[in-house]
C-alpha cells in the first residue's frame, strides 16, 4: 500500500514546533549559542544549517538506504564538510562579509551537527525522497526561526543594534551577547513553547482534515535495537535456508549414492 504523505503544515507543526530541534530536542546548541550574537550571523548559520540538512537528507534518502549505519553516519559528515568548507572559503575570500570569530569556527562545525545525523537516521533513510525533503525543510525552518529570534534579541538587547544598525538605546545588557545570555534566552523560549504546546496539539487534533494521529516515533535507541533484531532475524532466516539447502544437497547426494 502506498504510504500517505503528510502535508508540510502537519510536518512543520510536528517536527519544527512541537519537537523543535533547538528548544525541545536540545540538539545543535553549540552553533546556536556561539554564533547567534547578531542577526547577520544568525541568518548565515540558519542558511548553512538548512543547506546542510536538506542536501544531506535528500542524498541519504536517495543513495544510502542500503549502506550500513556506521558508514552512513561518516558519509553525512563528509557531505556536510563538502558543502560547508567551500561555502566558508567563498564567504571569506569572495565577499566583504566580516564573520565573527564564533561564526568562523562554528560554520564548518555545523557539518557534525547532531540535527543532521538525527534526522537523516530517523527519517531520511527510512522514507521516500519527498518526505525526507519536507522533513528536512520543516526542521531547518524551525531551527532557523529560533536562531533568528535569539540573534535579534541578543543583538538588540546586548549590543543596542539591529543588523549592524545602531538603535541608540539608553543602555544595553552586554551579558546577553555572551553564551550564558543565550542559554537564558533559550530557557525562556523553551518555557514559552512548553506553555503553548498543549494548545497547538489540541488544535492539531481538532483539525477536521488532519490525518490520523501517527504513532509516536521510536527513540533512535529503539531504532538501533529494531535494526539489530531485524538483522538477527534475517541472518537466522539465511542460516535456516542454508541448512535446508545443505540438507537437500546431502539428501540428493545420498539418493544418488
Amino acid at each position: 500500500m502506498k504510504e500517505q504523505t503528510p502535508s508540510f503544515r502537519d510536518l512543520y507543526l510536528k517536527s519544527a514546533v512541537l519537537s523543535n530541534p533547538v528548544l525541545v530536542q536540545m540538539v545543535g546548541l553549540c552553533p546556536a549559542v556561539a554564533a547567534t550574537a547578531s542577526v547577520r550571523c544568525a541568518v548565515l548559520i540558519s542558511a548553512a544549517l538548512s543547506l546542510d540538512l536538506i542536501v544531506t537528507c535528500v542524498l541519504a534518502s536517495v543513495l544510502m538506504k542500503r549502506i550500513p549505519r556506521a558508514v552512513r553516519v561518516a558519509l553525512y559528515l563528509g557531505i556536510g564538510l563538502a558543502l560547508l568548507c567551500p561555502l566558508l572559503y567563498f564567504i571569506e575570500t569572495r565577499t566583504l562579509m566580516n564573520l565573527g570569530q564564533g561564526t568562523k569556527v562554528y560554520l564548518p562545525l555545523l557539518a557534525v551537527n547532531a540535527v543532521t545525523a538525527l534526522h537523516c537516521e530517523k527519517v531520511a533513510v527510512k522514507k521516500p525522497v519527498r518526505m525526507a525533503f519536507l522533513d528536512a525543510a520543516a526542521v531547518s525552518l524551525g531551527a532557523s526561526i529560533i536562531f533568528l529570534i535569539v540573534g535579534t534579541l541578543r543583538e538588540v538587547l546586548g549590543s543596542g543594534a539591529f543588523a549592524g544598525i545602531d538603535l541608540d538605546l539608553p543602555f544595553t545588557l552586554k551579558g546577553l551577547s555572551l553564551p550564558f545570555g543565550c542559554f537564558i534566552l533559550f530557557g525562556f523560549l523553551a518555557a514559552g513553547l512548553q506553555a503553548i504546546s498543549p494548545y497547538l496539539r489540541q488544535a492539531q487534533e481538532e483539525e477536521p482534515d488532519a490525518p490520523a494521529a501517527q504513532p509516536q516515533e521510536a527513540d533512535p535507541q529503539d531504532d538501533l535495537w529494531s535494526d539489530i533484531l531485524e538483522a538477527e532475524a534475517a541472518s537466522s532466516e539465511r542460516l535456516a535456508a542454508l541448512d535446508e539447502f545443505t540438507e537437500r544437497l546431502i539428501g540428493g547426494e545420498e539418493d544418488a549414492q
Binding site: T172, K174, G175, L178
Partner: peptide, 11 residues
C-alpha cells in the same frame, strides 16, 4: 549574588 554578577558583566 547572581543579579549583581549579571550587572557586573553588563555594566
Amino acid at each position: 549574588a547572581a543579579g549583581f554578577a549579571f550587572a557586573a558583566v553588563c555594566f
